[in-house]
Simulated assay, not measured.
Amino acid sequence: MIVGLDRSFKPKWVYKMLQLAKPDLEYKKVEPQFLDLIEYSGSKSKINVLTVIRRYYLQIVKKDRKEYFGDNYLHNLSLNYSYNSLKPVLLFVLISECPIAQFLQSKINLLFIDQEFVESEVLHKHAKKIYGDRKVVTYAVGYYLTILSYFDILEKHKNSYSWKNRQLKVPDHILKEMLILYSHINDRYEIDVLRISDDVAFSLFDLSNLENVLMEYNGKEWAYQKRLNTKKVIITNKYKRT
């Protein structure tokens, strides 16, 4: 089973790469700049990071045996929002797109949400049951916890991790973008609002302003429908993923 998390990365690297990832630009022309952005000394580590970022954040299309950047909603967001504004969105995308990140976050939510520390050894045991007793699985657990520290969720100590923020508060306009991305990622333009809070991808975010956001952008980005026992959003911002 493919693990899909080959190295930890900093969200700042992703943000800067997204800004450079102009649609129809040949990937090879900016690959050296991408590698320079990655603050690791070893070439293998740099390549592993780039593999992860390509997999979950960049839209790459092949044409005439060459690779080009495709249309990418995240590229547009990187040009319109500051790094600090887009940072929580990048975390949301990782958990949405990366299966082992979803798995590990679900275990963290189940086992450690009320604890002071997140125990990596416990996560290793659970991950190995699903992904196998391999070094790459052990590494992936460490990479994910480190990534959470870069996103200000955990605080990394020498041999442990403690909570820094169990949930991040995001402003209305950023939660709006997350909902649009949620629709695109899942290729589902009708969203059951009652299920959003149960989705692991939203679990690290304070959704207390969700109803306000749904009403604020009703008729602009989506149609919000409320009935007796159901609430749903029909996304009208149907930005197509490549």
Rank of each mutant, 00 (worst) to 15 (best):
S85M: 06
I113T: 15
A101M: 10
Y73E: 03
L181K: 06
L179V: 14
Q102N: 13
V61L: 09
K176E: 15
N186Y: 09
V61Y: 01
R188Y: 13
S183K: 09
E155Y: 11
I108C: 04
K129E: 15
R134I: 06
G132Y: 13
K62C: 06
Q115D: 14
V93N: 05
K169M: 09
K169W: 10
V61M: 02
L79G: 11
K164T: 14
S160N: 12
L86P: 03
I180W: 05
V137Y: 07
L58T: 03
Y143M: 01
Q102G: 12
Y182H: 15
I191S: 00
K156A: 14
L86G: 10
T146C: 00
D192I: 08
N80L: 13
V136H: 02
Y182T: 09
L86Y: 09
Y139S: 12
F151W: 08
K66M: 02
R166V: 10
K176D: 11
L74S: 04
Y57Q: 01
H157Q: 13
A140Q: 01
V137M: 07
Y73D: 05
I108Q: 11
V136K: 02
I196C: 02
I185R: 06
K62S: 14
S82T: 14
L168N: 04
A127G: 04
K135T: 02
R134S: 04
I185N: 01
I185F: 13
K87D: 13
I174P: 06
E121K: 14
Q115M: 09
E190V: 15
K66L: 03
P88A: 01
G142S: 02
A127Y: 06
N159A: 09
Y56S: 02
S183Q: 08
L79T: 08
D199R: 11
S149C: 09
F151T: 08
D133S: 05
Y143G: 01
D71M: 09
R65K: 11
F112H: 07
Q115C: 10
Q59H: 05
Y83G: 01
P171D: 15
E116W: 08
Y189H: 10
L179M: 07
F69C: 02
V141D: 05
I60P: 06
A140D: 01
N72Y: 12
I130F: 05
I196Y: 00
Y144A: 07
I196W: 01
L91T: 05
V141A: 02
V61E: 12
D172G: 08
H75Q: 13
N72D: 10
L154Q: 12
K156F: 11
N72Q: 10
N186G: 03
Y150N: 11
S78T: 08
V141G: 07
K156E: 15
K135V: 02
R195W: 00
R166Q: 11
K176L: 04
Y81D: 05
R188K: 15
E97Y: 12
K63F: 08
E155P: 06
I60N: 06
